[in-house]
């Protein structure tokens, strides 16, 4: 079976600077793949290039047989690829419910949307309790849950998660990663996960890629990455 997402020789950047020089990775269906790396390694740029917000300068991005470079960002969502951007980026002055509705913006099936909102409320009961509140009034962890739920509202085949643990208390981080694992195991969701919290990410992922200054320098099964002495020294603080 071909991978659901295939990135090959990706080069991308901002203005005169290339942030990515040569990034290649694949995500298989039903797999959690994580990208780890230091600040500025190009993790977020890779995700942005996949979701089309940043336009790749060279290389290939194929998703479910489609060449994503030919699609604008808002069309890519329709193909079944949803992104939960770094820093959560929920809409602070829209209510929780409205935020979820925005996640389903590309869909035109109101009954299906309503059913999915109920499903999200089942997964994240706190969002149901606070559905009428402005998104900006939620706590950080709740906002992260909202950001994930909002991305799921697009009914994606592949979920791009950018730093879901950013700025959250350890207990909340555990909870968020529990949700990611659950999405994958029980619903077969494919996930491409970018994380600074490398240990946590590698524990939940099947495979891992290590990014350094815009290049993939190492990749293997997650437990192999997790036990590699160099990775342990560089990213896990040992």
């Amino acid at each position: 079976m071909p991978p659901i997402l295939e990135v090959a020789g990706l080069r991308a950047g901002y203005g005169p600077i290339d942030a990515l020089h040569d990034v290649s990775l694949t995500v298989d269906e039903g797999e959690i793949v994580t990208m780890i790396g230091a600040n500025g390694a190009g993790k977020t740029t890779t995700l942005m290039s996949v979701s089309g917000v940043v336009r790749p300068r060279a290389g290939r991005v194929t998703f479910g047989g489609n060449d994503l470079r030919t699609f604008p960002a808002h069309e890519i969502v329709k193909l079944g690829l949803a992104q939960s951007p770094e820093g959560r980026k929920i809409f602070p002055r829209l209510t929780v419910l409205e935020n979820l509705q925005m996640g389903a913006f590309t869909r035109k099936d109101p009954p299906g949307i309503a059913a999915d909102i109920e499903k999200m409320f089942g997964m994240f009961p706190i969002l149901n309790e606070r559905k009428g509140q402005a998104g900006g009034l939620l706590s950080g962890g709740q906002q992260q849950m909202l950001a994930i739920a909002r991305a799921l509202m697009a009914r994606p085949k592949l979920l791009l998660l950018d730093e879901p643990s950013l700025g959250l208390a350890p207990q909340i981080v555990t909870q968020i990663f529990g949700v990611i694992r659950d999405l994958n195991q029980n619903q077969g969701m494919s996930v491409l996960l970018v994380e600074q919290n490398a240990r946590m990410a590698l524990k939940v992922a099947h495979r891992g890629y290590v990014l350094e200054t815009g290049r993939v320098t190492f990749s293997d099964k997650a437990d192999v990455v997790l036990n590699d002495p160099r990775i342990r020294a560089a990213y896990l603080g040992e």
């Binding site: 979701s51 917000v53 604008p72 960002a73 808002h74 069309e75 890519i76 969502v77 329709k78 949803a82 992104q83 939960s84 951007p85 980026k89 929920i90 809409f91 602070p92 002055r93 829209l94 409205e98 509705q101 925005m102 996640g103 913006f105 590309t106 909002r150 991305a151 697009a154």
Partner: peptide, 19 residues
């Protein structure tokens, strides 16, 4: 709602499939 979402956060709105 899409207009307001766009005002609040253009990047996130773009990620939701808004043009």
């Amino acid at each position: 709602r899409a207009w307001i979402a766009l005002r609040e956060d253009e990047l996130a709105a773009n990620c939701m499939g808004l043009n």
